[in-house]
Amino acid sequence: MFEYCADPKSLEGLTWLSCYLTSGTHMQFYASFGTVLLLLAITAPIALLFGFGGALAARSHVAPLRWFGKIYTSMVRGVPDIVFFMFVPIALDQLFEYLRSRVYCDTSVPVRQGSDFVVCAAAKLPRATSPEWVHDSYGMFLAVLAFSVVFGAFAANVLYGAMNSVPRAQLETAEAYGMTRRQMNRRILIPQMWVYAVPGLSNLWMILIKATPLLFLLGIEDIVYWARQLGASKTQAFAYPHPDWRLYYFLAILIFYLLMTAISERVLRRISRRLSLGQATMAGEAMRKAGA
């Protein structure tokens, strides 16, 4: 980066450090913070959507829909994350490629050859000729999908519980006013359930922030991967040899995570206050009394 960095072995002290911290690998390390934030920003709303769908399905009066909701939440929650992330992205990828192979390939050639999964070049996702960023984005897409499915299942359970926590009297009143089930859901149940859901959802959000190291299983280089890679002791074969510095790198990540948690907590507290306003809960009651 700087001109004096051409021969790092001759440098010392702060100049050495300034070169070290601006090396190509460090730039990728800094960029990986962006990757993590991007993943969180995309995954959180999608997971919430999955969860919302799952919770509504689990409460549905239509039996197959209800079974689907129940099976989704209990199955996904029961599978260890690491197994899930080893399996699901590969399975999803194979499913997409299989479907495409039925359209673009000679269907007489089996996709399973021994233990290998092979489709013709036209059905590959992404195409082997695609530039590297397409491969990266596809990996990211699979990651977002896998994270959303897992966290959607947890969110579904939280929201299901929250929906059940809305006082029965509220819903009965709505029924007495002659509202249909749909109107009841939209006007009474959903606006009120959030206040019960926020603690559980904020928990999930924190877990999601910390789950990003699983990204490297999918070939995406996240902050923990880089910290481990950069902190590992480097022999003289490298331009910047150093002993085991993982502690410092992990401290930097710790600060990042603490900052994320601190910011999240402030935001979530505001949301929670906002949602409690005018609710028939203890927090809502306290706010009403304070205002009066």
Binding site: S23, G24, T25, M27, R127, Q229, A232, A237, F238
Partner: peptide, 23 residues
């Protein structure tokens, strides 16, 4: 022909490693 994609770990010097350019 499509390019051949070859995977490596990048954490086992001198067999494979990530150099200071990040490659």
């Amino acid at each position: 022909a499509a390019p051949v994609r070859i995977a490596s770990e990048g954490a086992y010097p001198p067999y494979n490693l990530v150099n200071d350019a990040g490659e």
